[in-house]
Each structure stands twice: as C-alpha cells, then as structure tokens.
C-alpha cells in the first residue's frame, strides 16, 4: 500500500513538468525542503526557530557568488553553501539552545535580522538590487542541465535526497533522543544526556538542509534577493508547517506546496494573497490543530481502530 503510494507520487512528480510551469514546481520543491528542515526542529525537538530564513537566504547568496565568480560545478556550489549554513546553524545553536520557547525564538530572530543587515550592507550581494545572473553551471562539470525541464529533474532528485536525509535523521538513534528531548527535556538530562549538545547538532542539520534549499532556489531563479532572508519568510515557513501538521513527516511538504501554489494563484490579486494566508491560518488553528496531514492521520487511525474493534 505504502509502496504503491510512493510509486504513484514518483510517477506524478516525473510527469508534472509537462502540465505545470516548471519554475513553480521547482519553487514548491525548494520550499518543501525548507519547511521540512524547519519541522525537524519544531516538530521533533520542540524548538521554534523564528529565523530559519537566514539559512535559506545566506546560502542562496553564497551559492550564487560561487557560481558567478568561480568555475565550480553546480553541486559543489550547493553543498558548499549548505555547509556554511550548517556552521552558522551550529553557532546560533551554541548561543541559543540553553533557552527555550519564546526566548529561543527571539534569539534566533535577532540572529536572522543581523544576517539580513549584513547581507544588505555587503558589497557582493548587490544590496537592495539582489544578485542577478546566477548561472546554472554543468552538473559534475560535464552534464548540461540548464534547460528548465531538465533542471526540474535535477531539483527533484536533490529534493528526494534532502527529504531522505531528514527521514534518516528522524528515524535514527539520535532522532529518538531528539523526540525524547521534545517530550521531556529535564528527564533526558536526568538520564545522563546533555540535551544542549543534541540540540546544537539538530540545529546544524536543520540549518544545513535549509541552506541546501536556499542554494537550490538561487539556481532555480538564477537570482538571490533579500526577500529570502526576510523575517516574513521565517514566518511563512511556520505557517506552512502548521498548515500541513508539525511533527508529521509529510505535513510540512503538503503545507509548503499549498502555500506556494496559493501565493502563485493569488499573486494577481495583490494583498489578497496575504489575506488568504491569514484566513487559512485562522481556520487551521481553529479546526485542524494537528494540521491537514495530522488530522488525516488521526482520522485514519480512528477508522482503523473502529474496524478492528
């Protein structure tokens, strides 16, 4: 059953660019990765990072800069940007993980604002204008993937890789400790663990994957802007995660796809996109507290139990 669903999903993903604008699809994929990286922290460690955009945006600039100024192949640029992002995540984590809840959120927010202004002031980013003309250099230095539809398959493969990495982390011995920290940090500490170490590592992984998404996004649009670092993106990823269902594996992906798709559809109506987002958020919080995927899962379990009993 599960395998059939996965195969169906793969088939749809492969066929989609023939029916839908590839850039929109690739945007969705980038945010699918981004929201999943955020959910790794919120849903599985219980950390609300209100500055996730700093990883997305910084990496976009770094990957863009590498591609523009050096001759490195595309995968090297993306991985290097993700690595820098992971290091930033480790540093932010080192400062912030001793705090929880709103304090943690505010420290990460402060860091994100700091990164925003650094990038605004920096010479190499192009400031308000953003960084234009980022080339899609050859994969492994030999394979030309610059055509939009071909590039879509590259982004799709990268997304699968990133999602698999997150799946791996969640379903690992380390992931079990993360979930335990989420449920009861004091208890984990009393068992002889140092929760802050686990949280810092989780921050690094989450930031690395968010950076991976940002670098990928820069190659999709072939430009990087300050929007990607702005706090509205940090807020939007919370909305995506809550809409889909935090702490569920597929929830943030569904949420990301829904929000990006809606934004695209409603773009012609200007502010209405934001109003629609607000209404959706209110409806989800009032009626679907576990998010779309979370509620669907709960419903599925209830029905199965009823059939059993």
């Amino acid at each position: 059953m599960r395998i059939a669903l996965v195969l169906l999903g793969v088939a749809i993903a492969l066929a989609l660019p023939f029916f839908v604008y590839p850039i929109l699809l690739m945007t969705i994929l980038c945010f699918v990765i981004f929201a999943s990286s955020f959910n790794l922290l919120l849903g599985y460690v219980g950390l609300l990072c209100f500055g996730q955009a700093m990883f997305l945006g910084l990496s976009a600039y770094i990957a863009g800069y590498l591609l523009k100024t050096t001759g490195v192949s595309i995968e090297i640029a993306i991985l290097a940007a993700a690595l820098v992002s992971a290091l930033l995540g480790g540093f932010v984590g080192f400062v912030a993980v001793r705090r929880t809840g709103i304090q943690f959120a505010m420290i990460t927010f402060a860091f994100a604002q700091f990164v925003y202004f650094m990038l605004l002031q920096s010479e190499f980013t192009g400031g308000e204008d953003g960084m234009q003309g980022i080339p899609r250099s050859d994969l492994f230095g030999v394979v030309d993937i610059s055509d939009s539809r071909t590039f879509y398959y590259f982004v799709l493969a990268m997304t699968a890789l990133a999602i698999f990495a997150i799946y791996r982390v969640i379903h690992s011995p380390f992931g079990e400790i993360l979930k335990a920290i989420r449920d009861n940090e004091a208890r984990v500490e009393s068992l002889g663990f140092r929760p802050e170490r686990f949280k810092i590592i989780a921050m690094m992984i989450s930031a690395g994957i968010a950076g991976f998404a940002g670098a990928l996004k820069a190659t999709v649009f072939q430009f990087a802007t300050l929007t990607d670092v702005s706090w509205t993106v940090s807020g939007e990823v919370i909305l995506m995660t809550l809409l889909g269902g935090m702490g569920t594996f597929t929830g943030p992906m569904v949420g990301a796809a829904a929000i990006i798709f809606l934004n695209d559809e409603l773009a012609q109506f200007g502010e209405w996109a934001l109003i629609a987002q607000g209404v959706i958020l209110i409806l989800v919080i009032l009626f679907l507290r576990r998010g779309v995927v979370g509620e669907a899962g709960a419903l599925w379990r209830r029905m199965r139990n009823r059939n059993k009993g």
Binding site: V169, S172, P173, F174, E176, G192, F193, R197, I205
Partner: peptide
Amino acid sequence: QAGKGTAYRFWRPL
C-alpha cells in the same frame, strides 16, 4: 542509549 556513543548517530537507521 545513555552513556553510549550510539545516541549521536544521526545517520544510522533505528
């Protein structure tokens, strides 16, 4: 898992 190195292995399956 307390006191064992396994707790940090985020790349290993359960």
